[in-house]
Every structure is written in C-alpha cells, then in structure tokens.
Design a protein around this nucleic acid. Structure first.
Lengths: 128, 128
DNA sequence: GACATATATATGCGCTTTGCATATAGGTGT
DNA sequence: ACACCTATATGCAAAGCGCATATATATGTC
C-alpha cells in the first residue's frame, strides 16, 4: 500500500480492475481508450491508460477477453475487446468473492462497533 | 493476475487484505499469528504468514495500526496490534469504495444480461 | 541432554505488478 | 509547419507478493 491510499479514496487495481473491465465488456465490445474513459466517468479518478492497455493484453493472454482490430473508423486503429466464456466465469466468481469479503468486513465492523463484546472476548477492548 | 486467479477462487490481497486485517482489529487488539488463523477460519484458504507479518509492519509504518510487545503469555513474545484513527478511516473509505465498485459491477452485468440494449448502443451485442 | 514439534515473528530472493514517462502513428485544425 | 486529439504500446524503477528459510521460546518425549 502506498501513502496515498492511506488517506485518499482507493482506486481499483489488480483483480478489481480486471473485474470492472470485464463488466464494462459484458454484452458489448469496446476498445481500451473507451474503457478508460468509462472508468473515469464511473466515478473513479483519472485512470492510468498505460496500465489499462497492459492489463487488457494480459487479460487476453489469460483468455478472459479476445480482441480484433477495427479500422473502420477514422483515426488510429482500435483494438476491440470482447468477453469470453472464461471472462464471464471470472466475473461471476469475483462477484461471489466480493460479496463474501464485504459481508465479512461489515459483520466484523458492526460487531465491534455497536455491541457489547461477546462472551468469549479473549482480548478485551482496545486499551490505549 | 496469475493463471490461478482465472479459474479458482480469488484470495484477498493488497488493500483487500489490509481492510480485512483492520476489520479483525476493530474494537480488539490481536497479534499476527492469531490474525492469520482467523482469516483461515473466515473461509479464505491457507494464508501466507510471511506476507501477513510483512503487511502488518507496513500498515504500522503507514499509521493504520500501532503495535506493542506482549510478553505476559508463555512462549515467544507477541507483537500486538491495535487500530488507529487513520486505520478506522481507511476501513470506512474502503467499505464505501467497495460498495461503489460492487454496485457498478452489478448494474453493468444486469443491464447487459437481462435487457434489450439501450437506444444509444454504439457497439451492438457481441458478434462472435 | 538430545530431539522433534508448536508457537510467533521476520527476512532474503525472485517474479510479477504498477505508476510514470515516453514513443509511435493517424487524423484534424490553423 | 505546427499544435492538438485520438489510440495503443513499452522501458524503467519501485512496490507487491509467494515461497522458502532463519530465529527464538516453550513443551513433550525418548
């Protein structure tokens, strides 16, 4: 973790960014530049385009997406990505995992924040 | 991403693991060995203890937790961690961020999976 | 005593990931 | 010619991470 993450709003990275890109591709195909813009519009801060292009190629090597060149539009060619079955599976697994993670966090936080400690409280409340 | 993540169940890492450790420390203090066990009991697979010890020290350097030695019990000394205000703030930020991420994912997935495409569908459904 | 085992923390090594800057290239506008 | 926007890609240094290993304290057992 970097010092920025400590105080500021977190940004997606790693599997989290992978999942969001897959979700953006669900049902439609899109190219990197477009996906980066959509992430920024979705409320996450300015995304690093280099990292996104790299991650997309990596996802293709892993089989989560497939790509084709699109030269029909004016301007530079676009590498257009589509979701694969493996990508779909990954996305579903991720949603389930995220749910478990979130439920675990909220349960722990609520338990410690709002209630008297359970009977088997081995450590006692924070002393400092 | 590694090839294991593609098919298998994801495990927490990075900020996600940080958040879970902070949640485990909410209201109580605990030491690394204990936290590692609790993570495994929480349903995540066998966690790497080295990574957890390292992350905890890193979190301390970042100000998310503080630590003291506990020599009262038999056996080796235990480094006992407690949540700081900054750690609490990070945990709250993380929960909010996670919520945004999850809502975004589910909205996109539901939109593409169950409905006819919106009027401004620039790309059209996946062709393959 | 000698040895294995469980508890508890820490670190070295190598691979991967990531942020930042930079490169390359096609197209538009002045 | 020049600046600017779109679009993708890569080099480099730093950080992150899995795995093995080291260190130290106590218990049990031969």
């Amino acid at each position: 973790m970097n010092e920025k993450t400590t105080a500021g709003a977190p940004r997606p990275s790693g599997d989290m960014l992978t999942a969001h890109l897959l979700a953006l591709l669900k049902g439609w195909s899109a190219y990197g530049y477009e996906l980066a813009h959509r992430l920024e519009e979705a409320g996450f801060g300015e995304m690093n385009k280099g990292s996104i292009y790299r991650l997309l190629r990596q996802m293709e090597r892993s089989g989560l997406v497939s790509s084709d060149w699109d030269t029909s539009a004016d301007g530079p060619a676009r590498r257009v990505y589509s979701l694969t079955d493996a990508g779909n599976l990954f996305l579903n697994n991720w949603l389930a995992f995220l749910d478990a993670h979130r439920r675990g966090l909220e349960q722990l936080a609520a338990l410690a924040g709002g209630l008297t400690p359970p009977t088997a409280n081995r450590k006692g409340p924070k002393k400092s």
